[in-house]
Structure formats: C-alpha cells, structure tokens
Design a protein around this nucleic acid. Sequence first.
DNA 1: ACCTGAACACCGTTCAAGT
DNA 2: ACCTGAACACCGTTCAAGT
Lengths: 228, 228
Amino acid sequence: MAKYAMKRKERNNGSSSEGLSRESIIEAAVALLDSNGESALTFRALSERLSTGSGAIYWHIANKSDLLSAACDAVVARTIAAIGHGPTPKESIRTFSLAMFDAIEARPWMGAALPRAAGEMPIVRILECLGGHVRALGLSEQQQWLVASAMLNYILGVAGQNAANMHVAMSKQIDRHDFLHAVASTWSRLDADAYPFVRRAAEFLPQHNDREDFLAGIDLILRGLDAG
Amino acid sequence: MAKYAMKRKERNNGSSSEGLSRESIIEAAVALLDSNGESALTFRALSERLSTGSGAIYWHIANKSDLLSAACDAVVARTIAAIGHGPTPKESIRTFSLAMFDAIEARPWMGAALPRAAGEMPIVRILECLGGHVRALGLSEQQQWLVASAMLNYILGVAGQNAANMHVAMSKQIDRHDFLHAVASTWSRLDADAYPFVRRAAEFLPQHNDREDFLAGIDLILRGLDAG
DNA sequence: ACCTGAACACCGTTCAAGT
DNA sequence: ACCTGAACACCGTTCAAGT
C-alpha cells in the first residue's frame, strides 16, 4: 500500500508545506552547510532531511557541483539584496566588498565553494555589482573590466584562504585565534636566512585583523586606479 | 616465501632505484596529477604506480591533504628556483607573478590545491618571494605585509578561477577557447536590465588574454603603492 | 512527471599481520 | 622500522520500478 504515498504524507507534515522543489532542496542544503560545514552536505543527509529518496534530488538538481553553486547563489543573492549604496562609487565598492567578506566569514563553506563556481550565477552577480560601481568611475570599458575582474579575483582569493584556515582549525578542533597562533609559531621556527620576511610576518600575524587587511587590499586596488 | 620480498624486488626494478620514500611518493603524485588531473590522484592509483600497498603511503605521508600540499610545494619550489631577478623590485614582482601564473596554468590541479594549503610551505615560499621584493620598495613593515598578502590573495584567486574553468572545460570535453565562448554565450543571454555589465563583458570575453589581464591586476596593485 | 531506494563503482583511512 | 592488503565506513550517481 505504497511507501510512496506514506513518504509524501510524511514530507508534507514537515516545516515546508509543499513537496520537493529546487528551492526547497537548496534551502535545505544551505541549512545543512551552515550547521555543520561542507562535509555535512551529502545526498544521503539531504534526502533524509527532506524525507525523500536520494535519487529524487537528481530530478531537480543536476549534480553536487550544481547544488553547491546554487547554495552559493542563494546566499549571494540575499547578501547583495541587503546592501545599500554608498555616497560615492568607491564607498559603494568598499561597502559591497565588506558585505561579501562578512558573508564568507560567516559561512566558511561558501569561501570554498564560490571559487569553484567560475562563470556561474553567484560569480555573475558579484561581477555585475562590482561592474556597476566601477562603471561610475568613468573609465574605458577595457579598464572597467580589468578593475572589476581584479577585485573579483582578489575577493575570491581571500575567500579561499579564509575557508582553508577555518577548515584546518575545525579539523584540529581549535578556534581561529589558536589557529593563527599555531601558524605563527610554525613560521617563527623557519630558517632565518631563507625566510626572513615570513618570520617577521609571524610576529604580528596573531593580532592582525583579517577584515581590515582585506579592506586595505581593496583600497590598494582602488588607489591604483587614481594613479593610472 | 613472502609477497613482501617479491614486492620489494618488483619496486626496485622500476625507474626509481630506491625503495619508498616521501620524495618518491611526491614525485609519483605530481606525475599522476600532471598526466590526468586532480581526479587521477588516488591512494590506489598511487600505490599501484609505486608497486606498493595503499597503506604503505601512510607511513610517509599524513593524509591526502598533506600529499596535495607536498605536491604543490615541490612544483612551487622548482618554479621559484628557475626565476631570475628583475632590474627593479617591481619588475621582479611582475616576473615572479607571471612565473606563478604560468606554472598554475600548466597544472590546473595546482590552481585548485594551492588555495587549500593556507599557511603551509607552498604558500610560505610564495609569500617569502613576494615579501623579499616588496621589502626593497622602502615601505613600513605594516605596508609590506599588506601589499604582499594582497598580491598573494590575488594570485590565489586567479589560480582558483583558472582551475575551475579548466575543470568545467575538461568535464565537458572542450578546450579553453570553446569554454570561454560557451560562458560568453550564456552571459549574453542574461536579462538586459539586471546584468548590463556582465552582458557587455561577454562581448570581449572570448578574445581576452588571461595572462595579460592577470598582469594588469598586478600592475594595478603596484600602482596603488605609488599613490599611497 | 515525479519519486523510491537498492545497487554500482568508487573513495580515504585503518590496522592486524607480516618481514 | 617499514610494508601488505583486506576491511571499514563512507561517497556521488544511476536506474528499474513504482505512483
């Protein structure tokens, strides 16, 4: 008498009143990623949370890469929607960049997934935002593209490093602060002749502010524009 | 009479005359990665290539992340060793950055693995090189760190995008050129009101030069230094 | 059209047992 | 000390079968 109908009933008793859909799957994926990180997103865990079969997801989602990209897109879209314009184009760029930084820091899985979504919607959204602000700076089209893509690459680079840092910290069961101390400690024991710069960097690594350093990088690129 | 002894004999008939060692494992890992990409590096394939048991590798290598990081390190070390100094600090930075770009473009697996090696040796090597050149620019220590890490993040961002692009292209069995055309075609069909910048970018995306754009980004950061 | 869930073809990692 | 290879505990993805 139909496991099918029972499952269907079960699912509709859950929080989402409707049946399976692309949106409900993505929503569940984001919840899974947010609660326990990238490794928590498996088709088995996802189908259990949605009270469905693991194969059912493939009717709505092409594959895991598509799922991760869609999860990023949902978060990026929400993040962008919440950002206001700044008084000047440059301020808008700074505000936007910081919003992206905060979103990525709040969700380490996105720092890892975003760089892998090259050319896809979440990246398109970010590029469009950057481009819109860059456009107001009065540069040639060629220059607009160069600046916007340089910033995109910089943001994605920081995103990746952030994610990698958090990943190691989590696997060692320590927090960000202890992790930075551990890295600094390793760096300070490097050969003094071969690694003078990194050894000095180790000294102020523990107390540096990721967010401020990130913004300083954005400002560096913006200042390069004036000098051009 | 010992499978053990037989295996040992078999291994020593191979190209590497010595037994298993960290170096020989890393060398084999790089060869595997170079020939068939990231998915080709499995402990099973690696142990077969080395004529050993898959568990044996764990005597010399902590885990897969360690292996990937060590493979990156081997390539980065070789790449850096082959770079000469430029006539000025800025030229040195440009030369170094391009060498890294070329190394990453030649090995897409490294573009994906490098950003995941946060704080580890391959990153330390890159940071030290950048720092050494930045130091010659006569900035404060704080400024030196900001510039070097901004460049590192930018390079890693480009590396990640490059890897992601190549990964998609390979999975679709097309080359870089056709892939860029496919992305451009998708972008040009985006909503005109919501994505004006990306739509215009789509027009010159196919004929743009990744390497030149990358260098333009480095120059942008370098110019920001003058303006500061 | 949409869903089920067993089955397939893999993974990284461990570990008792060997030499 | 170093190596073997079966076993463990997972994966993503497919697909015949259901409704």
